[in-house]
């Protein structure tokens, strides 16, 4: 008998409902960073060629190093 045939129908439905909640167990900071864009991300991961305006200067992000 296969694994699925050992599970009750009720258990299987509960497991499917619970699937979207699994992301809650991921590392939240990384999830945020993925949607924040380079300017809010970890500076070490930001695009060094991104154009930024700082104190009136139009610069590449790498100029700020």
């Amino acid at each position: 008998m296969s694994f699925f045939k050992k599970m009750s129908r009720r258990t299987l439905v509960q497991a499917l409902i619970a699937l979207p909640a699994l992301s809650l167990f991921r590392k939240l900071p990384e999830a945020d960073a993925a949607h924040a864009g380079p300017s809010r991300a970890d500076p070490s991961r930001a695009d060094p060629d991104e154009i930024v305006e700082v104190n009136g200067w139009i610069l590449k992000r790498s100029d700020l190093a």
Binding site: I51, E53, G56, W57, I58, L59, K60, D63
Partner: peptide
């Protein structure tokens, strides 16, 4: 932006 892209220089407003 053009000066940056072409590696010609930088601008300050």
């Amino acid at each position: 932006t053009t000066l940056i892209e072409k590696d010609l220089g930088r601008v300050r407003l």
